[in-house]
Each structure stands twice: as structure tokens, then as C-alpha cells.
Amino acid sequence: MKSRNSVAKPTDLPVLMPIAERLTRGRGIGLSYDIPRLQLRAWHGLFLLGVLVFFSASAWAQQSPDHPATLAQAFIRWMPLLLKAFVFNIVMSFLAMSLGTIAGVGLGVMQLSPTRPTHAVGWFVTQFFRNAPWLVLLFFCMFLLPFRFSVFGVTVPFPDWIKATLGLALPVMANVAEIMRGAVASIPSGQWEAAHSLAFSRRQIMFGIILPQCIRRMLPPWMNLYAILTMATVLASIVGVSEVMTQTQRVLSAENRPEFIVPFYAFVLLLFFVYCYPIARYTQKLELRYAVRD
């Protein structure tokens, strides 16, 4: 037992550890702040895989002679289509995140403006888009934006998926603005005082001193938002964009095999898990690191 211990821990003596690390370990020295915290682990993905395998097995068991194709054959046939559709989800999430971040930073700067009208407009737009349901915003974009528009006689098509991306970018924008406002507010007022006392102008303080300190604080919630957005891209299926959910539905109706439903949706879940899990883990790591240093 002793030798096993020595592998895990280099010493049996009590070791000073950053508090954030101990908090997340859940098991510390039994103090009241030593709250247990569950964390997303790689094996949670195995659980999804288990669901997939279990229902695949049951689908195999229900195999009847009228339907010669097996589940494996169906998967092989449709895999390229589903993966392509999933890549499309990722492309939409990237675009929506980029657009939303650019617009959100602009909105955040507006909110932080000392000029009252600018501040008020920034505040209103942020609150409006942050508190509206994502699906409602998506519908607005789908039905209010034209499917094409003309610039100097040239007709530019405006396909559904771009409209959906814009619809998703709107709540992202508002959330980024709010993340930014929160980060700026979290910088101690002493930083402003010190910078003012050194004769920096407001603009210089904001861009040279406050915002650079904010980037570090904004990164974890920003990545969190990205993971949420990625999962929200399936909302586009409701408005008919050919992303992974839409394609899965089409595949299932083409196959017309009720026992395939659970395995196929479990597969979609697994795809999202594999993509979002590393992001979530990396975010946790960043949060920990900054919690220790601040």
C-alpha cells in the first residue's frame, strides 16, 4: 500500500496547494469550503458510446427478414453525409462566433462609453438580444431577411444557412458584450485611479491598461459561450438548414426503421461530445490557472 501511495504522491507530508485546485478535487481536509465538484471527464463520452452500442445491439436483435440492411451497413452508407453535415455545424459556429465577437466587442465598448446616449444604446441592444430566446432570434432572421438582395444591379443570394448564422450571431454578440462589461467591471477601481493619477486619458486607460487585463478574464467565459453556441447550431434544423440534425432526420425517414432512431441520435450526441469536450476541459484549465493567480 505504501508503494502504491508513493506513485500517486511524491510525499506523505502535507503539501501546500493552491486553494482552487483543492476545491476542484472535492476531497481535501474536510473544511467547510471544501465543496465537492463534479467535472466532465473523458469517460462520460464512453457512457454515450455505451448508449450507442446498447441500442445498436437491440436494433440488431429486432432485425427482421423484411429489412435485409443491418445497422452497420446503414451507418457506413450515411456516415459521409452525417459527418459532412456536422462539419457544416462547426462552420456555422465558427462564423457566428467570429461575427458575434466582433460585434460584441463593439457593443461592449459602446456600453462602457461615458457618453450617456452611446451607453444607453449599447445597454439596450445588449439587454434585448441577451434576453430574447435564441430560437426567436433565429426565426426573426430567417423570415425578416430577404433570400437575396441586389447591390448595384448584382443580385447576391442570401442562403438560409447564412441567415441562420446571423441569427445565432446576435445572442452571441450580446453575450460577448456582457462578458466584456463584466470583465471591465471586475478590474479593481485602483487601476483606474492609479492610471488617472499618471495623467493617462480615459481612452488610453481603457485600451492600454484595462482591456489588456480583461482578455485573460474573458477567455474562459468566451470559450464556454462557444461551446454553448456549437450545441445551439442544431436549432438551425428547425428552420430547415441542412445541418447534422436535419440530415439525421432525413436519413431516418429514408431508412424508415424505428429501431435506428436511438443509435443515430446517440451518434449525433457523440459527435458533439467529441468536439465540445476538449473545449470544456481546456476552459476549466484556464479558469483554474487564473483563479490561482488573481
Binding site: 493619477s197 499618471l198 495623467a199
Partner: peptide, 26 residues
């Protein structure tokens, strides 16, 4: 010039840059 109880150094800059920022930018 003013010095504060909580130091209020700029944490994202090293000591030398803390000193040099204002004279260069202001």
C-alpha cells in the same frame, strides 16, 4: 504624483514597463 495603499501597479506589465508606460504614452 500619487502612491496608493494598494500599490495599484499594472499587473500585466513588468516593473520596468510600469515605470515607462506613462512617460512614453502621456
Amino acid at each position: 504624483g500619487m502612491v496608493f495603499q494598494q500599490y495599484n501597479l499594472f499587473p500585466h506589465k513588468n516593473a520596468l514597463d510600469n515605470l515607462m508606460m506613462a512617460p512614453i504614452k502621456v
